[in-house]
């Protein structure tokens, strides 16, 4: 009788969580299923709902029996999972920004130290100097021409190509004097 009272409360959505454990299992028994059906029938009649043929539920059951059993491997989304998903996304974003910021800060600090020590960062010599040296080695008329126009030459300042330019040095007696 206690079990039937629990089924009665279950169909009203009034069971406590503790009582709920095992009730669904109970409905799988023939007796539990029968009480579930009878109590629902009473409610339907009291509300004035006319009935399907008395064997309607059994007909549906028979039709379901010939259906392949469904299996849903994906877990159902529970309340609170959406919040967790957004929280994880936000945490990942903050972590990403922090990492980028940290790298930027470290590089910036490293540049400052080199300059402060009086040791300029090791960079490739400006192409202007090497081109000047090359021009100096050129013969007379062409050398004059190149020297006059090398300031406006687009090759004088190749942004982003410094890494690919090899620095050369020559012994230039003229410059040395």
């Amino acid at each position: 009788m206690v079990e039937r009272e629990r089924i009665s409360a279950l169909m009203d959505g009034e069971l406590t969580d503790d009582e709920f454990a095992g009730r669904i299992q109970q409905l799988r028994t023939e007796e539990g299923a029968e009480d579930w059906r009878t109590y629902h029938l009473i409610g339907d009649v009291l509300r004035g709902d006319s009935m399907f043929s008395s064997g309607f539920a059994q007909k549906v059951q028979a039709a379901l029996a010939s259906e392949p059993t469904v299996l849903a491997p994906a877990p159902l989304r529970k309340p609170g999972h959406a919040f967790q998903r957004y929280a994880m996304a936000a945490a990942a974003s903050v972590a990403g920004i922090a990492v980028v910021g940290w790298f930027a800060l470290v590089n910036h600090e490293a540049g400052k130290v080199d300059v402060a020590d009086g040791n300029p960062p090791a960079t490739v010599a400006p192409p202007v100097a090497s081109s000047r040296a090359a021009i100096a080695q050129g013969d007379g008329a062409v050398g004059e021409y190149l020297r006059a126009h090398q300031e406006v030459s687009p090759t004088a300042e190749l942004h982003g190509l410094a890494a690919y330019i090899r620095t050369v040095s020559t012994q230039d007696d003229a410059d040395g004097q």
Binding site: M11, I24, L27, R28, A33, W36, R37, H40, D44, D49, S50, M51, F52, F56, A57, V60, Q61, L64, A65, T69, V70, L71
Partner: peptide, 15 residues
């Protein structure tokens, strides 16, 4: 895979 659980829903909502 518990078809009986679905039967309970059929009973509950058929009318």
């Amino acid at each position: 895979g518990d078809k009986r659980a679905f039967d309970m829903l059929v009973v509950k909502y058929q009318r």
